[in-house]
Amino acid sequence: MTEQAIRQAANRRIITRAVMVAVAMFGFGFAMVPLYDLFCDITGLNGKTGVTDSGSARAQAVDETRLITVEFTGNTAGGLPWEFRPAVAKMQVHPGQVAEAVYVARNTTSDRMVGRAIPSVAPNRAAAHFKKTECFCFSNQELAPGESREMPVRFVVETDVPQDVHTITLSYSFFNAGKYSSSDAGTGTAGSDAIRRGEKG
C-alpha cells in the first residue's frame, strides 16, 4: 500500500512538472515576440524599411544647421513590368523638416495589374530615424492598362539622426501583388505593423 502511495505521489509530481514545463514553453512562445523586438532593437536588425508613423507627425524643431541629402530610387521586380521612378532623384532637407517626394508608376502592359511597393532605407543606421508620415507602401495599387499615377511620400528625418549621416537613400521596389490582392493585409513580417490600407493614390 505504502509503496503504491509513494509511487502515486511520484507520478503526480512528474505530471505536475511536465504540465508546468508545457505551460512554460507555451508561454515562452508568446514571450518570443517582445524578446525578439528587444533583440532587434539592440542589434538594429530588421530596421531597414524605415518607420511608418501614420499618426500626426510629431512636431519637431527643425535643425537648420544640418542638411541631409535624400536620394530616391525605384525598382520593379520581375513579374511586374511597370515603369516606376521617382519624379526627382534627390532633394536636400533639414532634420525635423517635413518633406514630400513623388514617385510615378505607369502600367505599360495591356492588363489590369495590382502592385505593391516595399520601402527600404539605407544606410542601416539612418533607417530608424527616417519617419514616413504618408506612404504608398505595403498597400495594393491597382493600375489599368496604360494608366499612370503619382504616388506621394511624406517624410521627416528626425533631428537625432547620427551626425555622420549625410545621405539617406529611400528605395521602393514594386512587386506584383496579384497573389496577395484578395487579402490586403497579408502576413508580411517586415511591415506587418506598418501596413496601411491603400487609401490614397
Binding site: N46, A77, G79, F175, T187, A190
Partner: peptide
C-alpha cells in the same frame, strides 16, 4: 498557401 513570410511582394523578408 498565399502567405508571405519571406516574399517581399507580400511584405515579407527574405533575410528572415
Amino acid at each position: 498557401f498565399g502567405t508571405a513570410f519571406f516574399d517581399p511582394a507580400g511584405g515579407g523578408d527574405p533575410v528572415m
